[in-house]
Design a protein around this nucleic acid. Structure first.
Length: 562
DNA sequence: GAGGGAGGCGCG
DNA sequence: AAAGCGCGCCTCCCTC
């Protein structure tokens, strides 16, 4: 059963019941106008668990969640449109029904983007609007009925997915499930104790400065800054300024091309350790200090916004709060509620295992049956695990220099299909072709700038450079993107199977999920996660001997999971 | 004074 | 301009 949803601005909306595919016909069987959309969705969900067809979970679902309504399945039209558009070589359109409609009819893409929280906060909306909220930001021509148009676009997408085959249908369903999971995660929030984080900050930085603003530094940070200035005999030296630091280093006779930590560590000077410590703490202060805490943590929950498919490879991105870069020290303040615990699951060595699966390399697949793939691979390099890891990562990232070259030659000999697979992807990229993930997500075609540079107008070396840059990108795309599909399938399966437990998905980071559940449920939840991981592998890779072992931990504090 | 590129670093 | 992919977000610093 499929219900199409169009929401009004006032909590009501229209619902259209689609005919079963076997019955044929594109016209809805029934259309209802409701004044309380959340209540209507709740009722139909309880009675039928339909597949909901709507424009955009990111816009609609948070309101439903706030009203206490959850749904099992949906078709997210803008997410699916983005996948389909990518396969036509089109990227960067706004996530609106108008863009999907325009693409369907070969019209210019309307330039109506979603208003972000930030633009709303500063009173965006323009001088012509009577309210802060855009009444219609669909980007559709006003004469079109939005529900009818949504139905039309949905049918077109469904037939494109059917024509493309089961892999892409699976990707569309998983991406849509991801859209639901993302909204649910933001709704739930990651439990984070602000007092505890603040205490960690005081421990590292000293007390919070009484007055904010530029130049205000916590005590320990200021001491370090003073120490650096003194060591380089320059009282005015601002350690935040790479330009000034580089000058100071040079004045002290130290050879450095950049002020990056790895390069500074090579230098022998009393100011350098102070500078390194300063940089580390300054990073903490600016990225995850008290300002961050106040902006992003409310009522003991960190609530970032997730952008499903926000990375070209299909990985998620995030907006605000730096959710996908939470440093270890912040994780120390991520503590489960009283009587609750975290179940943290991360996939070990996901990308090389994915490579083994998508390339169907028997040798690598065999190694990928082991708990530690790199140790297993070490035999190839005389038992040297580090070499195995370096070589394989080099193969997936396109590294050729340094000691990786000879390792790669060995790997190529031993695992010809696996290395051949990424080599082929690199070759496609270099030649300006596109590559696809396991389930059919397409990488962007070369840009006009790329074609111009490859044309050679600016010199052979430059042309070579950009061609090989793209080769490394496509080489990695097939692996990273297929790994993202496994993770997406895990999320989709998990949220279906966690019903009946207290568990909620509260964080997701590329190859790692964090669930928050009652202590008594932890064992059962762990089992569900393990089963879901198996199911994800089956869904995405079919029959494969490759194992995707999970590292499972039940912990009170996120930082203890590692 | 807004905007954006560069440098830098956190995460996978 | 760190060998080697993908991001977000901070400050600095230059341009308009």
């Amino acid at each position: 059963m499929r219900w199409v949803v169009h929401a009004d601005e006032d909590g009501g909306g229209r619902l259209a019941l689609l005919a079963e595919p076997s019955a044929g016909g594109a016209a809805p069987v029934e259309v209802r106008r409701v004044t309380d959309l959340a209540a209507a969705v709740r009722e139909l969900e309880a009675a039928h668990r339909p597949r909901w067809v709507w424009t955009d979970s990111a816009r609609l679902y948070p309101d439903l969640l706030r009203a206490g309504v959850r749904v099992a399945r949906c078709h997210d039209t803008v997410l699916v449109d983005e996948i389909l558009a990518a396969r036509d070589g089109k990227f960067g359109a706004p996530r609106t029904l108008g863009a999907a409609y325009a693409r369907l009819h070969d019209l210019p893409i309307p330039d109506v983007g979603r208003m972000t929280a930030a633009t709303e906060a500063v009173g965006g909306g323009g001088p012509m609007q009577g309210s802060l909220f855009e009444p219609d930001d669909s980007g559709l021509p006003p004469e079109l009925d939005q529900l009818d148009t949504l139905i039309e676009v949905y049918h077109a997408q469904a037939s494109q997915l059917d024509a493309a085959g089961p892999e892409l249908r699976l990707l569309a369903a998983a991406e849509s499930a991801g859209g639901l999971a993302a909204a649910e995660m933001t709704h739930a929030g990651l439990p984070l104790d602000p007092e505890l984080h603040s205490a960690h900050l005081v421990e590292a930085l000293g007390p919070m400065p009484a007055f904010g603003g530029p130049g205000a530094r916590p005590a320990k940070l200021q001491q370090l800054a003073d120490g650096v200035a003194e060591a380089f005999h320059n009282p005015a030296l601002n350690p935040d300024s790479p330009t000034q630091v580089l000058k100071a280093l040079s004045a002290s006779g130290l050879p450095a091309n950049t002020t990056r930590a790895w390069e500074l560590r090579e230098l022998d000077h009393p100011g350098v350790p102070l500078l390194l410590e300063y940089k580390e703490l300054a990073r903490l202060y600016t990225a995850n200090g008290w300002t961050w805490l106040r902006a992003w943590v409310r009522d003991g929950r960190f609530r970032p916004e997730y952008v499903v498919g926000g990375v070209v490879t299909g990985r998620w991105a995030s907006r605000g709060g730096g959710a996908l870069q939470l440093p270890a020290i912040v994780r120390r303040a991520v503590v489960a509620d009283e009587g609750w615990t975290f179940v943290v699951a991360d996939a070990g060595q996901l990308e090389p295992r994915v490579l083994a699966a998508i390339s169907a390399d028997r040798g690598l697949a065999e190694a990928a049956q082991a708990e530690d793939l790199y140790t297993e691979l070490g035999d190839v390099f005389g038992g040297d695990r580090a070499k195995a890891k370096l070589g394989l990562l080099g193969a997936m990232y396109g590294q050729t220099s340094g000691e990786v070259g000879p390792l790669l030659a060995t790997l190529r000999r031993r695992f010809p299909r696996a290395i051949g697979f990424v080599d082929d992807a690199a070759k496609a990229g270099i030649e300006g072709r596109v590559v696809h993930t396991r389930l059919g997500r397409a990488c962007p075609p070369p840009s006009a700038r790329w074609r111009r540079l490859v044309g050679g107008a600016e010199g052979e070396a430059r042309a070579d450079q950009v061609r090989h840059d793209r080769g490394r990108f496509t080489r990695n795309f097939v692996v990273q993107g297929s790994a993202a599909e496994w993770a997406l399938a895990l999320i989709a399966t998990l949220r279906q199977r966690l019903g009946g437990t207290s568990a909620e998905l509260v964080f997701y980071l590329h190859d790692e999920v964090v669930l928050h559940c009652e202590v008594a449920d932890a064992e059962r939840v762990s089992a569900v996660v393990a089963e879901s991981a198996l199911e994800a592998a089956r869904l995405v890779f079919g029959q494969t001997p490759v194992r995707f072992p999970l590292h499972l931990a039940t912990v009170k504090c996120y930082a203890d999971a590692k």
